[in-house]
Design a protein around this nucleic acid. Structure first.
Lengths: 149, 149
DNA sequence: GTTGAAACGCCTTATAC
DNA sequence: GTATAAGGCGTTTCAAC
């Protein structure tokens, strides 16, 4: 379904979603309308789920990422659902994965600094429903990110 | 520098970078040109660092995320730099953080499935320069992601 | 069925207020 | 910050392969 040409288009769109269809066509050797039609199909199929502005957290006072390992009291479905609903409404949590292994969830929390994280930690994270234990790992620096996946 | 109005604009652009300036203006009660001028300034100041297409990994045969904790043999700057340069060229690694605590780096690796990860693990990750130990944590499901930070 | 070309309409951008 | 005007781009339609 997604062929080589599609992947080239997707690769360009990952690094810059604002390049014109004409410019994409030049780079990969395709006409503007062909590029346009392929992108439209990729959007309809849900391969492209959306377009997002990439922000610089530091310039908004949100320069620190903290990884948070969460263990719940039980692993029963209703409790998982309840936790997931609650954590989704926490603005500082920008990523949430259900995990294998010792911890149940891995979150990435974006805050201003360590003091700001302390606030989020005891005001929000430890108050989420069903939480037994919270383990935090601070990042020093984001080396890179490849947006889009 | 970034006021409430800017934050409203950024919030809209995070969830959908394709809404027109006119539509943003309607939502927050501002004229099209005012929205345009603010966005331009946010781009110039680097608050908005870019725009990216958000892809559905599953539909591209890249549905599984694995978190990888990497410990290096030394923590001296040249070795860190060398590792960072090498890991940046590994296509499966979509995120890389320098960490505090026991491990040196935390990577997020996107692969097709466990078998695919095994390949990346012994062909690439363990071959990166200066790597002493690699610890993998598999995800079951991505609960959500808030794009842009 | 897929590609290339042209007309249309909307969005971005720039100027003036 | 608002209003208006012009240019560029995405969109759509149609013809050709």
């Amino acid at each position: 379904m997604v062929d080589i040409t599609d992947r080239k288009i997707l690769s360009i769109l990952q690094s810059n979603a604002r390049v014109s269809h004409a410019e994409i066509g030049e780079k990969i050797g395709l006409s503007t309308s062909a590029v346009n039609r392929r992108i439209k199909i990729l959007e309809q199929d849900g391969v492209i789920s959306g377009y997002a502005a990439v922000l610089d957290g530091k310039k908004m006072g949100k320069g620190a990422s903290v990884f948070v390992q969460v263990t719940l009291k039980t692993q029963r479905k209703p409790q998982l659902d309840e936790f997931e609903r609650a954590v989704a409404t926490t603005p500082e949590v920008v990523d949430c994965f259900l995990m294998t292994g010792e911890m149940d969830y891995l979150l990435r929390v974006v805050v201003q600094d360590a003091a700001d994280y302390e606030r989020v930690h005891h005001e929000t994270l430890t108050q989420l429903p069903g939480v037994e234990r919270v383990m935090s790992q601070f990042t020093i620096r984001r080396v890179f990110q490849k947006s889009g996946l």
